[in-house]
Computed example of a mutant assay.
Amino acid sequence: MTEEAPEPIRRRPGGRAERVRRAVLTAALEILTEEGVARLGIAAVAARAGVNESTVYRRWGTREKLVLDAVLTGSSEGVPVPDTGAVRTDLAAFARALAEYLATPAGRSVARAASLSSDDPDLAGAWQTFWQSRLDQAGAIVDRAVTRGELPAGTDTALALELLCSPLQTRSLLGHRPIEPDLPERLADMVLDGLRGGAAG
């Protein structure tokens, strides 16, 4: 008599820890969108996510780290860094994703919160980390372009991305003006003209 092989254990992707993480980050972004960063506390997030406060403290430790993880996750998912194989289409795709994200309540809330100064040094430090993390992620667009020879070595990555993104943020958060469908491509062309022209000069 041949023994049957044991049925393999089936594990659900992610598991409970990932489900808890997603629930907490979703709750944090919802509170940030609805009430702003000043009202975002660990107790409120835990209650909305349906977990114990101790679970949140054990994973994130502080409110500032929770805020940082939530906005980084939200912005990374909402504004992914494209890799189309060409710098112009990368820049245009990134600008379009940012414009679409800024048109959502969550995107506007994250951008407003991140643009405010804070008297809390820990929270101010979290926002600085947020901006640097996004710069590091999106900087891959410029790094790849330099490697391909589309942009000169020594191109100022931070300046390139600021030139691309600032008009979109200004229109969405300050001017309340619509973003034309062709604006991402126009901004990409203007940024590239400036970077290449500056290098030639």
Rank of each mutant, 00 (worst) to 15 (best):
E7Y: 10
A106K: 05
G197M: 02
R196S: 06
Q137A: 14
A95G: 06
G125Y: 10
Q132R: 15
R10H: 14
G175W: 12
V87Q: 00
D83F: 07
Q132G: 13
E100D: 15
G15P: 05
T170W: 09
E185H: 08
S54Q: 13
T73M: 03
G41V: 06
L195I: 06
Y101V: 01
D119C: 05
R96Y: 00
D136K: 06
A126E: 02
R11Y: 12
P8C: 15
L72C: 10
D122M: 10
D182T: 14
H176N: 13
L174R: 06
A153T: 15
I141P: 00
T104C: 09
S166Q: 10
L72G: 03
A70Q: 02
T157K: 13
R171M: 15
A44C: 08
R96N: 10
V81S: 10
P121Y: 14
R19L: 09
V142M: 01
G85A: 14
M190W: 12
G149Q: 07
A140Y: 00
V56F: 02
A92G: 04
T157Q: 00
A5C: 04
R96A: 13
V20T: 14
A97E: 05
H176P: 00
A49C: 01
D182L: 13
G74A: 09
A138F: 07
T104I: 05
E100C: 03
A92D: 03
I9R: 11
E64S: 12
R96M: 08
D193P: 01
R134D: 05
E150S: 01
V191Q: 07
V81G: 07
G41W: 05
A17C: 06
R10I: 15
A97R: 04
A145R: 01
A17L: 10
A46S: 11
L164N: 04
T170L: 08
T89V: 05
S54P: 00
E150P: 04
P121E: 11
A93S: 15
A46P: 01
S76D: 15
G36P: 04
V37E: 07
L164T: 02
L40W: 01
T104R: 09
A5W: 04
R59L: 04
E35S: 14
W60M: 03
D143L: 12
A145M: 08
P8H: 15
P152A: 08
Y101P: 00
A126D: 03
G125P: 08
R12W: 13
A111K: 08
L98G: 00
E3P: 14
A70I: 02
A138R: 09
R21A: 11
P6Q: 10
H176M: 05
G107K: 01
I141L: 05
G201L: 15
V191R: 01
V146P: 02
R108A: 14
S115I: 00
V37T: 04
T170A: 06
R22N: 12
S54Y: 09
R148G: 09
R186F: 02
A114P: 03
A114Y: 06
A140D: 11
G194T: 10
D143C: 10
R22H: 11
P13W: 09
L25S: 03
E34W: 02
R39Y: 08
P105E: 11
C165F: 06
V71G: 03
S172V: 09
S75I: 05
G61L: 11
V24E: 00
R39T: 07
F130C: 06
L173S: 02
V81W: 02
R22M: 13
A200K: 12
Q137H: 10
L161N: 03
V45P: 00
Q169K: 11
